[in-house]
């Protein structure tokens, strides 16, 4: 589905954001793309969508070179950017204008998602709140049935019930032929739907693993003191004592503390490429 080999990319004369970057992802997954601000998450999504041209390396998505922007490729890729603008018109008008361009667009699926998100085709796009506009875009992306969905901070602007609805709708709408890449800072919003997590930092893939695998390999606990945690991979002080991540002994499976995991990865205490 996505095959990136030895990719180099830089904006203008700035230093390379990606240098010798490689990544392969197969379809039928929801992958969380994490990283600090400026790590290159959005740039990576844009490269995959064909909005940016890599200077060097091999980049194929669904067998196409994204930057050639082949219409057959574009028909199967939908990207929801972090910031977006929608035209001043009704949802029905927008759908009439855009849906004929997506051959696999599923109107019934759209109606179902609309019902979950409490959206109506008669609504005017500019009268919707930012969160509702985002929900509209998510509904459109899911109904487009594109093989690759690139979502940049999809839960930004969504209220708490909508975040939960988003997870429910995503899980219920994605097929095995699709791949969803979610770039986010709000890991907790999407942790329950991610199959895999990939962390990039300074243009390098520094961690990648299945969420189930992380839960089996590591334990995340809060302890009063570190005297019994000689095997701890990483810890942080907290009001309750210490939050610790350590290799699992196989006795119990704790939930994943995503913030702790992310900090451990970023501080190079964990490596699972």
């Amino acid at each position: 589905m996505i095959d990136i080999q030895h990719l180099t990319f830089h904006y203008g004369k700035r230093p390379a954001l990606f240098d010798d970057f490689s990544l392969s992802i197969e379809q039928g997954k929801i992958v969380g793309l994490l990283g600090k601000n400026g790590a290159g998450k959005t740039t990576l999504l844009r490269l995959m969508a064909g909005l940016l041209k890599p200077q060097q390396g091999w980049l194929r998505v669904n067998g196409y070179q994204p930057f050639t922007r082949n219409p057959n490729f574009l028909e199967d890729v939908y990207m929801i950017p972090e910031t977006f603008s929608l035209p001043s018109m009704s949802i029905a008008g927008y759908l009439k204008a855009i849906t004929p361009l997506y051959r696999s667009f599923d109107r019934e699926k759209l109606e179902t998602v609309f019902e979950s998100f409490e959206l109506k085709t008669g609504d005017h796009l500019h009268r919707l709140s930012h969160g509702q506009q985002k929900k509209f875009l998510i509904a459109f992306a899911l109904a487009s049935n594109c093989k690759l969905l690139l979502l940049d901070e999809p839960t930004n602007g969504l209220d708490i019930p909508s975040k939960s609805l988003f997870r429910k709708v995503m899980v219920g709408s994605i097929s095995d032929e699709q791949l969803v890449l979610i770039s986010t800072h709000q890991v907790k919003d999407v942790d329950s739907i991610m199959d895999e997590v990939a962390v990039i930092d300074h243009g390098k893939m520094i961690f990648r693993d299945h969420c189930a695998g992380i839960g089996q390999k590591y334990e995340f606990e809060t302890v009063l003191d570190l005297s019994h945690c000689s095997d701890a991979v990483y810890w942080e002080s907290s009001p309750m004592g210490y939050r610790v991540v350590r290799p699992s002994k196989g006795e119990k499976e704790t939930g994943i503390d995503w913030e702790l995991l992310f900090n451990a990865i970023i501080n190079h205490k964990m490596d699972a490429k």
Partner: peptide, 18 residues
């Protein structure tokens, strides 16, 4: 005229020629 609409337009499933 705007970056957000540029991305939307470039990603519309049609060729540059069209």
């Amino acid at each position: 005229n705007h970056q957000t609409t540029t991305a939307d337009y470039l990603l519309l499933p049609a060729s540059s020629f069209e």
